[in-house]
Design a protein around this nucleic acid. Structure first.
Lengths: 117, 117
DNA sequence: CTATCATGCCTAGGTAAGCTAGGTATCAGC
DNA sequence: GCTGATACCTAGCTTACCTAGGCATGATAG
């Protein structure tokens, strides 16, 4: 998975915003959600994910709130701010356009994004 | 184009190998080829491109050779080594699989790469 | 003749971000 | 008691894009 590090840089933030929009709320769950939603192909290391969440919060894209799980564990729950929802759309668009440009060069056909939200 | 910096990181090397395979040989031409092949959407800054070419050469993916243009200018011509050709295919594959994984999360349909080479 | 622009190469330093490798703590199950 | 899963965190390493400069020549406009 190491070779994916450079690739991940452009994709991590849209991916995080997406899984949170889809219902994942706290760090550990977000990591699992990314793994599951990508069918095991994407792995956000803790040392990557937690700083990224703090970054997004600092940028005003996420709100955070501590809560206790039924088992008594501390969890920090995140949710999208209005700005975060806007940014989610913006990053989706940027991702789509960028990959289209690269696919153009690589000679790979591109698809339209599904309007699935 | 600044926002693309993180995205570019995972894509620059496959893109460079691709345009060289498609006939671009020296730095300035490679830069223009990337711009043209992406229909103006991708821009590899000189401060990004030249170090990348040196990196690829150091990795044994490119061979370089100085030559003089018809106008008398010095040009450094690059070509893929056998290893570079292998890596081109490997990076194409990696790019395709990675974007597939991200698209899975973002809910974007993916396509099969065309066998266009 | 002389600017200016395109061509053509280069790199030092700033910055950002993923990863490694650690740390801390609780709960469940054996 | 021990191990593994859960749950959070960060310091430091490393890599690589970008900014902003540098140098040089040829072509073109004025």
């Amino acid at each position: 998975m190491k070779a994916n590090a450079d690739l991940l840089r452009g994709a991590l933030e849209p991916v995080i915003l997406e899984v949170i929009a889809d219902g994942a709320t706290y760090g550990y769950e977000i990591a699992k959600a990314i793994e599951k939603a990508s069918e095991g192909r994407l792995l956000a290391q803790e040392g990557t994910l937690y700083p990224a969440l703090h970054r997004l919060q600092k940028q005003g894209l996420l709100d955070a709130e501590w809560a206790v799980s039924p088992e008594g564990r501390q969890r920090k729950h995140y949710q999208l701010t209005p700005l975060g929802r806007k940014q989610r759309q913006a990053l989706r668009k940027e991702w789509t356009e960028f990959t289209r440009a690269v696919n153009l060069i690589l000679g790979i056909e591109h698809v339209q994004p599904q309007l699935a939200w």
